[in-house]
Design a protein around this nucleic acid. Structure first.
Length: 674
RNA sequence: GCCGAGGUAGCUCAGCUGGUUAGAGCGCAGGAUUCAUAAUCCUGAGGUCGGCGGUUCAAGCCCGCCUCUCGGUACCA
């Protein structure tokens, strides 16, 4: 088999890593790498921290430290978390390393010299006081759509629309507060469009075996038509553009980050080129779905344009992991952080590895819940695996003082049981080879299931009274099955299998030993055993859930900032508005819209139709009969073909939830509000 | 709006190029058992495979329309 280079998405060093990172990328990559090593294959697992880009400079600025301070802090935390969880990186580097500056710089130069870039001059906002160009994030202003203040140059957080910085009304630099001016700047672009025919062939024709989510997203992008992409930015944090005219510019973070895989390999070994350029090497990118386009389209185009490098053989991207029903979010602190988990569940790395693999978001987004975490630990790790191992070990000590008995003649059941181990190996191998890790884990656990069934069927504790000779065979087989567990489960539960090998007093076994019935010789002495896993109590789980609920409550209060008051208006202006109390008589969601609901309101004056954007917060049933405040003399307007005659007044809470403004006690419809 | 992925038992998910009574784990019910962290083993209940229509001798799987979730992208207020 070819040697295998496994890359893992570079985590962004503006925060610690959480269970989503682990589940989507690092655990599957590590399982695969360990599996390959057990098979005796040549394999490299590379990773590193992604340390450039605007968000890091923003964070540094907020904290009054340098970007380097920020990335040093998080690189340390991230690297330690991975090591603690047993992610067996051959190298874990970072994109601020000297090697990376050289490698990415040279990569850029090569493409430049080959004429692979296009140069384009465009107008960008420039801060005359800070004397620098402004990234979109550095600019705030009034959103041209919803008119709310404080919209960022790339997105308005109030209405969610993505923006161009030049669309903002009354733009301001967040660095100096100055009014930015448009200024010309030159950048280099990678012409993805030029590589469209190549990408079509390489992905759509030659890699139909890629996962549907990966293949589908690539197809979607290619079909839409690819555009040249800027590879440089006006910024002072990053790898400097290494050519004339590049002063004050750095490589765009997406360009330098994947080159980090190459740099990391180079730091590890002088033989790095064989891992990147040799036909006998295959490359795999383990990533999350947010990275599909970069790893399937952009980076391969870079590699292709360069000419010397291999392209990935597969990109087994996972979807996202949610936490207790909500999207994981670093900024909202909605996450289970790896370093915190280890403080609260010391020594339980494997439990998390297990749960995240068993419930990995392989085909669609999945949900992590603490209740499921507990159930999988108690019902699977403890009850199936831990229990079987314990039964085998306890009986061996009880009957033979810890000395492995010799097997006698095998019965049909014995043979069938051993044959099942071999079948399991086949299935397990097939699942691993095709990156189906949750299925693989299930098959690996089957070894313990087979053991439980065997021991229950053979009932050695009964047979020992009538036929002690037979019990020797039974127990020998139980111990062989236990030894098989250490192989089948090694890549999933490395810490526990090391413990188990300690109990069995054996060394690590090779993959090819899986399925064999002579892994532990007769006469071998096993050690005193302890429990492999322990139950997790309800109280422990409740504490974790409570911790999250506290976070949620804190988030809503903390994050809320009352919008500044608008400019004064005259009393006369205010009195122009005719606000009444009315009652909703009928309601129905407007088809094909997300937010709109069509309401029939009794205003006391008449019964009229109002279209209101409340459908995300209320169902039709729950609003019928409610009294509401309604602006009745608003110019009627057509929304989705329905004429809306007025506007329902709503208050928006910190979490975005809309609430009706209604009288404390019921009043007669048509009562005016002033 | 357009593109992509997903919608299968209470929960989490498998279902190969369409082919006999649709599967697994957990949960639940009943039974067996006591070596084991009340763990294990056996049996069972439970599904109009999102909805409607079509192709076919035959559809969860193919086609069309609709609907919901997630993601991408575009545009309008």
């Amino acid at each position: 088999m070819k040697r295998t280079l496994i890359t893992t998405a570079l985590p962004y060093a503006n925060g610690p890593v959480h269970i989503g990172h682990l589940a989507g990328v690092y655990v599957p990559a590590d399982i695969y790498a360990r599996y390959m090593r057990m098979r005796g294959e040549e394999v490299l697992l590379v990773g590193g921290s992604d340390e450039h880009g605007v968000p890091i400079t923003l964070k540094a600025k907020n904290e009054g430290v340098t970007p380097q301070d920020i990335v040093d802090r998080y690189h340390g935390i991230i690297k330690k978390a991975f090591a603690d969880f047993g992610i067996t990186f051959d190298v874990y580097s970072r994109t601020t390393s000297d090697t990376h500056y050289q490698v990415s710089s040279n990569f850029f130069k090569t493409l430049y010299e080959k004429g692979e870039f296009i140069e384009k001059t465009s107008e960008q906002y420039y801060d005359p006081e800070a004397k620098q160009f402004l990234a979109d994030r550095y600019i705030t202003g009034i959103c041209p759509h919803c008119k709310s203040e404080g919209a960022y140059g790339d997105q308005c957080e109030a209405c969610g629309t993505s923006l161009n910085a030049t669309d903002l009304i009354d733009p301001k630099s967040t660095i100096s507060g100055a009014k930015p001016e448009l200024k010309e700047t030159k950048h280099w672009y990678l012409p993805l469009d030029k590589y469209e025919p190549f990408l079509k062939q390489w992905i759509l024709e030659d890699h139909k075996e890629w996962k549907p989510n990966v293949y589908g997203q690539c197809k979607s992008w290619i079909d839409m038509g690819l555009q040249p992409r800027a590879v440089s930015r006006d910024l002072d944090w990053g790898v400097p553009v290494p050519i004339e005219g590049g002063e004050g510019k750095v490589l765009y973070v997406w360009f330098d980050a994947p080159i980090g895989y190459i740099s990391a390999t180079k730091e590890l070994t002088p033989e790095w080129e064989k891992w990147w350029k040799d036909d006998d090497t295959r490359m795999l990118h383990f990533i999350g779905k947010d990275n599909i386009v970069f790893h399937c389209i952009v980076f391969p185009t870079m590699l292709k344009a360069h000419g010397d490098y291999n392209l990935p053989e597969n990109v087994p991207a996972n979807e996202f992991l949610n936490l207790e029903g909500d999207k994981i979010s670093t900024s909202r602190n909605w996450a289970v952080w790896l370093h915190e988990y280890l403080e609260e569940f010391p020594g339980k790395q494997d439990v998390l590895r297990y749960v995240l693999t068993a419930n990995a978001p392989e085909t669609k987004d999945n949900d992590f819940t603490w209740k499921d975490f507990q159930a999988r630990n108690n019902n699977e790790l403890v009850a199936i695996l831990g229990n079987f191992v314990n039964r085998a070990l306890v009986l061996t000590h009880k009957y033979y003082g810890g000395e492995v008995p010799a097997a006698g003649e095998l019965t049909d059941t014995d043979k069938a049981t051993l044959a099942e181990l071999a079948t399991t190996k086949e299935k397990l191998q097939k699942a691993l080879d095709t990156y189906h890790f949750r299925e693989a884990l299930f098959e690996a656990m089957n070894v313990a299931r087979i053991g439980n069934k065997y021991i229950a069927d053979e009932e050695p504790w009964k047979v020992v009274k009538t036929d002690p000779e037979r019990v020797k065979t039974i127990m020998n087989i139980c111990l062989q099955i236990t030894a098989n567990c250490t192989i089948a489960l090694e890549s999933f539960l490395p810490f526990s299998m090391e413990k188990l090998r300690g109990y069995l007093n054996v060394d690590a076994l090779a993959w090819e030993d899986l399925g064999k019935a002579d892994l532990i010789p007769a006469g071998h002495t096993i050690n005193k055993a302890d429990l492999l896993f322990e139950k997790i109590e309800d109280a422990t789980i409740e504490a974790q859930v409570q911790k999250l609920l506290d976070t949620k409550a804190a988030n809503e209060v903390d994050s809320y900032e009352a919008a500044p008051a608008k400019d004064n208006c005259s009393f006369d202006d205010f009195m122009k508005m005719d606000i009444r109390v009315g009652t909703i008589l009928e309601a129905e969601k407007v088809a094909k819209t997300k937010k709109l609901m069509k309401l029939l309101v009794d205003t006391g004056i008449d019964k009229r139709t109002v279209v209101s954007g409340i459908a995300e917060h209320y169902t039709a049933e729950e609003v019928i009969g409610k009294q509401v405040s309604i602006l009745v003399n608003l110019e009627p307007r057509k929304l989705r073909g329905i004429e809306s005659q007025g506007m329902i007044l709503m208050a928006e809470n910190a979490d975005g939830k809309l609430e009706f403004i209604n009288p404390e006690n019921e009043v007669v419809n048509g009562s005016s509000v002033s």
